[in-house]
Structures are given as C-alpha cells and as structure tokens.
Design a protein around this nucleic acid. Sequence first.
DNA 1: ACCATTCACTTAACCGCTTCAGTAAATTCA
DNA 2: TGAATTTACTGAAGCGGTTAAGTGAATGGT
Lengths: 347, 347
Amino acid sequence: MKHVNIKDVAREAGVSTTTVSYVLNQTPSQSISPETTERVWQAVRTLNYVPNLNARSLTSQKTNLIGVVIPQTEPGKEFMFANPFYGELLSAIEYTARRNGYHLLLSGPDPDQSYINIARNRSVDGIIIVGSYPSKSLNELHQLAVPVVLVDTYVKDDVFHTIGIDDRLGGQLATRYLLEHGHRDIAFVSGSVSEQGVVQKRFMGYMDALNEYGLSMNEKYLYLGTVSYDFAQSVAEEMRLRGNRETAAFATADILGMGLIKGLRRLGRRVPEDLSIVGFDDLDVARMSDPSLTTIHQNIAEKGRNAVQIILDAADGVSGKQERILPVSIVERDSVANLAPQGRINT
Amino acid sequence: MKHVNIKDVAREAGVSTTTVSYVLNQTPSQSISPETTERVWQAVRTLNYVPNLNARSLTSQKTNLIGVVIPQTEPGKEFMFANPFYGELLSAIEYTARRNGYHLLLSGPDPDQSYINIARNRSVDGIIIVGSYPSKSLNELHQLAVPVVLVDTYVKDDVFHTIGIDDRLGGQLATRYLLEHGHRDIAFVSGSVSEQGVVQKRFMGYMDALNEYGLSMNEKYLYLGTVSYDFAQSVAEEMRLRGNRETAAFATADILGMGLIKGLRRLGRRVPEDLSIVGFDDLDVARMSDPSLTTIHQNIAEKGRNAVQIILDAADGVSGKQERILPVSIVERDSVANLAPQGRINT
DNA sequence: ACCATTCACTTAACCGCTTCAGTAAATTCA
DNA sequence: TGAATTTACTGAAGCGGTTAAGTGAATGGT
C-alpha cells in the first residue's frame, strides 16, 4: 500500500505542492482562492491523504510530541505505572496533551539515561519528568533546547519548570490531625528519604507538627523502606519487634497506609482502635480500603494538566521558569481514632 | 543552541556524510577502516552529536515507535489509566518495547478516532490497541500498512493480530468454584456486555458452569453497569431492592468485587459470611482488600510483552496473523465461604 | 492611463538523514 | 603481471514536507 504524499495530492488537484501545503496548513500569510482550496480538499479526500508528520517535523522543527518520563516505583520491577498514582497522572497528561494537538512519547528511565536523548533526537517539543532523579542526570537535561517540567522533584535550579504540591504542609496537616486527636506517639512510615524527593519535605512537616506540640521526633518511630504495600505490611511486625508504643502512624503514601492496615490485622490489631493511620495522596484505593483511609488529598490530575500547560505556554513563547505549587488538604475518613484524655477510645 | 547534524560530524571527521552514516549504523554491507571509524566516533563525541530520528525515519521508513491506544475505562472520565489493570499492562508494554529499542506513542481514543491517523501519519511501526472498540472503527485500521495487535478484543478478522486470555474459561472457573462451595444462587456483576468485549465471554463461562450443575441463568441475578467501584457499591443496595437471595456473586473485575464488598458492608452484610465473591484479573488491589479477594488470575504483564513481541516479529518479517491466548487460573483467598448442605457456613 | 499593489499561485532550496551507484586504490588470483 | 575482485570511501538523489522568493495577472489609486 503506497503512501500517498503531497505530490500525489498536488497532481490530483492540478496545483503545486506548495499550494497544497498552504491549504492544508491554512497559512495565514498566503491567499488561496476558494475554488482551489476546495479542489485541494477534494483531492485530499479522494486520495485519502494524511500528511506525514515526520517529514513535517523535519522542516517545521515542531513535533507536537511531549516526552514523558515516569519512574519505576520499585527498583527492579518493571511495573512502573502499576502504582495508581502514576496512572492517574499519566491520564491527565495524555488527555490534556491530546486536547491541544499533542501526543505523548512515553519512556521509563533507562539505566543509561537515554531518556535524555529522546528529548534530543526525537525532537520532542517538551519533556515532563515525574519523580526524583539524581541531580547529575538532571544536569544533562540542561543542554536541551526544549522546556523541561519536573513533577514532584525538589531541585534548586532556574531552568527547569516545576510542578508539585506543598508536601511539607501535607506532612504537617497529617501529623497535626493525629496530634489533635490526642495521639502523641506517632510513627513515620515511608519509602527512603532522598535529597530531591517529596518524602523529605513530608518528613519536615511531620517534625513541624510535633514541634508545635512541644514534642520532638523519636527515631524509634521511624520506619523507612520502599513505597510498597509489602513493605508497609512488614512494618506492623517491625513495630512489635521494636516494642514501640505508638498509637498512630503517618504513612507518606496511601499504599503504605493500606499495607499497614493489612499487616496490623494479621497480627490481630485493629485500625483505628489499636493504631490510627493517616495516608497521603488520596488515591481511589484510599476510600476502597477498610477502614477507609484518612489521608492528605492532592489533585493529581491537576498536576498533570499543569505540567502540560507549562510546556504549551513555553511553546507559545512564554519565557521564564515556572514554579507551581498545588494545595493539599486533609480528607477525614475512618482510619483515625480519637484518643480521649482518659485513654478511652472514641472513633 | 544549534542542532549539530551529520554534516558537522562529517566535516569534523574529515569524511563524507555517507561515511558517517555508515559508521553510525554499522551498515553491514559497507566496510569502513578502523581508523576512520574511530575518527568519526571521536567527532560524534566532541560535537555531542545525536542523530535526528525524524530525519532518519523519513528515509528509512522505520520509526522505532509503537503506537498504543488505551481506552477510557469510564466514558466521560479522562482517567483511563487510573485503573491499575491498564497501568500494569502499559508498564509491561513500555518495558518490553524499550528493551528492543522502541518507544511508545501513547494516545487515548479520540471521539473522532484520530488514533487511526496516528498510525498513518506518525508512521509508527506497529500499533497496539487495548480494549474493545466498535468494529466499524476497527475496519478503518485495515488500510494501515503496519501490524495491528488487538488486546482483549474478540473480532473475527484475519488481518489483526490478537492477544488475550481464555475469558470464557475464566468465567467458568470462577462460577464453578462458587458452585463447588455449595452456592446455587450466584449473581453476575459486570460492566456492559459488548459484542467484542471480554465480558461477553466471561458471561458465557458463567453460564457454562451453571449448566454443568444443571442450573440455568436467572435474569434477576444479573447486575450490569460500568466497570467501576461506585457501580459495584450500588449493586449491594440493588440486590436488596430486588429482594434476591443470592449467596454469591461473580464480579467480572476485581474493582467490581471490591466495590461490592464495600457496598455490602455499608448495609451491614459481611463477606463472605453473607455473600461470597469471586473477582477477575487478580490485580494488586485484590490482595489488599479485606477480605482479600478470591479471583481469576491473568498474567497482565505477559499480555503486554506478547503484544510487543508480535509487532517485533512482524517487523522482522514474520508473516501471517498471530493469535495468542494466555491461560487463566483461580486464586483462592478469603472472599468465598463454604455453604454446607445444612446451610451452615464454614469459611 | 500608468504605476503600485494585491492576489493567486509556482519554483526551488532546504530540513537531516539514508542509500544507490559510482570511483580510485589496494589486494587477490591465475 | 594483468585482469578481477575487494576495500574504503564519495556524490548525489530522494524521503515528504515547508517556506522564502519570484511571477504574471488582476485590481486599485490618482
């Protein structure tokens, strides 16, 4: 099946390829008669012509492609998008991009960081990078001529655009909520704390709240591992091993909160009666869990929309680094118990 | 920042662009001296040259791009990938593709079906279509020159490759499992039954199992809606309204099973004591639920890997339609109770 | 009525790369 | 040793578009 090209259309319509191009792109500076325009469209229809975007990109230097790099959530596992968080984010990105005539070029991060090359050799019009990466590999992105949007990465830099949430406030809200409900011994359950990641900020918020109440962080209450259901499940056991007496836990991801619930239940402990839990993200699964998870809400879709919008803006000539921070809020559900002064429990 | 091109490299290395091209692609039919080869690579390094894949694709007619079309799970919602099923599938696809030097061009289905054009104008090397679509829109894909892989679509056609699971057997296994546990009044909870979709097959399996036990389908036990947690939750209420006496339910997706659990609990009914449930898919969330969900396992990642492999094969010249069906099995967890003859319950 | 515009198009160069068809020198073979 | 082959390259066409510059004819202004 031969690819029909612009020449075929030109021949069919009895005009030059230039004219066809002008008609197709409705080039504003050029005037084409209505009759010719119609003839061209007619030819396009009869030949069922579709422009080759590769060729078009070659000259126009515009690809209408946005590169998206999404991390593995667990090292070694290939299922990076299995985490619903990324699914929702990617959905919003895809939808917004498509609404604006863009498509997505998707990639996980290669060990050899070839995702940088994607931006260069595919000539994407922009690139969205989700999650935290070693800053040295980010440095390589500086040589790029296209706008780069970092999602959920904390990095001091005045070239990359960033979009994120107020993670520190989120951590504070979560912890404060537990404090307000009478809890004083609050565990901190999370994946590893990296320099550029969100966990560090949430941890700072955790400490902020403790400080508000004149408390200080107790290292025995820190449970750091990976952002996975299984790790969180094991934390329940670890709590017992450490002989800790925490009455509540702040889990920095809903998945962690859910794993923790499961782990506790296995040991015969109940949520929230024996341990109150606040999660983070407000994924769909948070309300599906039993008990449903009190959590910090963030607007994931809005994050995705903003990421695309920043690139769209940049493509439209808006200059200067953009830095957007979306709000967070607490969603009260059923995983936190009120610890009355007497030590009695009221859910 | 000027794009450095092959000419710059040629000049730097003191050779022709042809030679550079041969070195870069290691064209087998051409012999280049080691010294020249080294000079070219040296030039590539000093200039930090990255080939423009757009230009390359233009001549070579190969893009190393695989188009992926993933449906919205709920009409009107933009979050098509939020369903963990698609996340896992997409992950496997992306990973396998990247391992083989391909990238993914991602798109949701436009109302105007422009995803067909993606295949044509972006000149992807293949296209993977997930989920069921109206067969007329599939017909348009026939004009494509690239291999098309349909995932989870039942369509009689000898052009499209297909990859799926034995949905009918899955439905049968699920239902039979309930029957084996003494259940006779078994609800069928699912999204809408479409011509090409998987639900229809699962429904047939449901009936197969009933027939095995000399039972026939009772229309009162059919609950059809959308594949969503919320719908399933409402089914619990609907069951009461209908005044039905089912002791078990086969939910054609894990999300439905989970929603059903939640809905029942809201009404003070317990799973599995009051209603036993078998789900489908064996998503991560199935084991996270409480009670954990007995479900039909399918290897989602394997599905994704196969989809890519089919395209890779076709690109390598393997001809003929491929049709792969992956096995299913039942995973026993905690959502099914044994209904003893006396009517007593043993979990 | 004459020059300046505007209109409606076309010609041709170019985007960055691949690849066919050469070509001159070095090597092999009889 | 001369012809045939191989080696190591190069020139130029072409992939399918876009776009700057150019060209007649029609229109406008005075």
